[in-house]
Design a protein around this nucleic acid. Structure first.
Length: 504
RNA sequence: GCCGAGUUCGUCUAGUCGGCCUAGGACGCAAGGUUUUCAUCCUUGAAAUCAGGGGUUCGAAUCCCCUACUCGGUACCA
């Protein structure tokens, strides 16, 4: 049977980069064996719904190039794929569990439960709704059947709780961690169906995974503690459980702990694929896309954060990842996100791109800055400068002088390279540069070199002062290549301008 | 507190059934080379007593036990 996997986020905000990795691993796993990858939106908590989050999720995957075969926004035979649209479907399953003795109705109010917890706390104990306490609570186990029926009839608020069998060992077979065993005595009777008529994650998740014929549940490690509940639920329903794989967490770069939105703000790197503006507070969080990352680089980086191919290859196209991926090469421990490594990946991917491929992004950048340019000219600059870029967004930091003549000159460089008489020398060189009708880079180069030598000038000083006049500082690509692109007229203007400013 | 998972260079990790590990690669860092500049690039280097302690064994990063630490969970959130 071909695997069917799913990515099932909650629309409670922008998609976290850890979630993206989970989705990616699901995707790779499915594609590798010709399986199906679907998107299900788990919006059973109406109080946490955030406007625009669902659209964000879909757009983020579109940008990343991760495609779903079924699900919200795509459709499919086993929909709807949004849990709020399946609301009516869950109640009968909860009732089935009650009828079969696997669950019970509980009428305890949140206040009553709170009181119990406080009381226990005072005695330095913890209250747990389980086999040891459930017979002291208000539920269908303790109340007479006719009262239970009457209360439900009257519309009393109730929840459905799972009834763990007493003192049994629950085995969870995890594809990454092996066998995890826990005794039911330690687990509390989880709410499966809420008083607002919605299922909790646990119920909805199991019912939907079953109905959608999910074969492998690949999700974050934070779900490992509730995996025993899930296997018990499959057992209670008499359904075959999918295989589980719990992924290690993505940790913050400094210290420990789960990577959070805050860390991104604090350390200056994106935690979200796309920029996100909080609809309530208006707060803006940066995204990989807006920060100049290439989607291929983000995917490659994420793939290697918690998984390795077992070889020394590090750069993988998405197709190569699909081929190489395997669940048993996923590591068990959490991985710290590294900004330096992310930068490096992006740099590598920029080098893999041609100037044509980079053009649209750079064009967009220049337009946003109100900079005028000619397409052919820009293309030449990109081809020359791309090897210096870690991010497309850095383009102007390195290549700005190709579009705007320097208005000021680096003090340090001036002090080192611009001496008495430099202006005159530059004028002489400039004349040499203007000599060809059509600028000949090689000829100009030879001519200038020859001239400097015959005058016994200091090569480094003359050439670098010319560079300062053109760039504004002692940086940049090879001098004559630069002059070739800029044009001798522009170089002439810049030389005169520099002399004017520096030597006045 | 209780339960679960984890622990190899600063970071990501290799290390599948113990010997080829005086622990390999990558990022970052340092030095040198190329570039008469800067960046790129190339070369070299420093960097892990394999969390600690006990075993088992001729031999352990690899197997067993204990401890420590870290993270996760402990909601009518997912």
């Amino acid at each position: 049977m071909k695997p069917r996997v799913r990515f099932a986020p909650s629309p409670t905000g922008p998609l976290h980069i850890g979630g993206v990795r989970t989705a990616l691993y699901n995707y790779l796993f499915a594609k590798q064996s010709g399986g199906t990858f679907l998107l299900r939106i788990e919006d059973t908590d109406q109080t946490r719904f955030v406007e625009g989050a669902e659209e964000y999720i879909i757009e983020a995957f579109k940008w990343l190039g991760i495609e779903f075969d079924e699900g919200v926004g795509i459709g499919g035979e086993l929909g709807p794929y949004k849990q709020s649209e399946r609301k009516a479907l869950y109640k009968p399953y909860a009732e089935q569990l009650v009828n079969d003795g696997w669950a019970y109705y509980a009428f305890d109010t949140p206040e009553a439960l709170d009181a119990k917890r406080k009381e226990a706390e005072a005695q330095k104990r913890t209250f747990q709704y389980d086999a040891s306490t459930r017979m002291t609570m208000e539920n269908s186990l303790t109340l007479p059947p006719d009262e239970v029926a009457r209360r439900i009839q009257d519309g009393d608020h109730y929840v459905v709780r799972f009834k763990y069998p007493e003192d049994t060992e629950i085995h969870v077979h995890d594809l990454i961690r092996g066998e995890v065993v826990i005794n039911s005595r330690l687990l509390d009777d989880k709410v499966l169906y809420k008083s607002d008529g919605m299922p909790t994650y646990h119920l909805a998740n199991i019912v939907d995974d079953h109905l959608m014929q999910i074969t492998h549940v690949i999700r974050g490690e934070e779900w490992l503690p509730s995996a025993p509940l899930h296997v018990m639920l499959y057992k209670a329903f008499g359904w075959e459980a999918p295989q589980f794989a719990h992924l290690p967490l993505l940790l913050k770069p400094d210290g420990n702990g789960k990577l959070s939105k805050r860390d991104g703000d604090r350390l200056g790197f994106p935690v979200f694929p796309l920029q996100w503006t909080d609809p309530k507070s208006g707060e803006v969080s940066s995204g990989y896309r807006e920060s100049g990352y290439l989607p291929e680089a983000v995917i490659n980086m994420l793939a290697l954060l918690g998984w390795n191919p077992g070889t020394e290859q590090e750069i993988f196209s998405i197709d190569e990842l699909v081929k190489a991926f395997s669940l048993d090469k996923i590591s068990k421990s959490g991985a710290k996100f590294s900004l330096d490594k992310a930068k490096w990946f992006n740099h590598e991917y920029i080098q893999l791109k041609t100037a044509e491929e980079l053009y649209p992004a750079v064009e967009k950048l220049l337009v946003s800055k109100g900079i005028q340019f000619d397409k052919e000219y820009l293309m030449k600059v990109i081809a020359l400068m791309k090897e210096r870029l870690n991010f497309v967004n850095e383009f102007l930091d390195h290549a700005g002088f190709f579009f705007t003549a320097p208005a000021e000159y680096n003090e340090q460089d001036l002090k080192k390279r611009w001496k008495e008489g430099t202006g005159g020398k530059l004028r002489a060189i400039d004349t040499l540069l203007q000599q060809d009708k059509v600028f000949d880079m090689q000829a100009a180069h030879d001519r200038v070199m020859e001239y400097i030598k015959s005058n016994e000038w200091n090569m480094g000083q003359v050439l670098n002062s010319l560079r300062i006049a053109i760039v504004g500082e002692a940086k940049g690509p090879e001098l004559f290549t630069m002059i070739d692109i800029l044009g001798t007229d522009e170089v002439h203007r810049r030389v005169e301008k520099a002399i004017n400013i520096v030597e006045s």
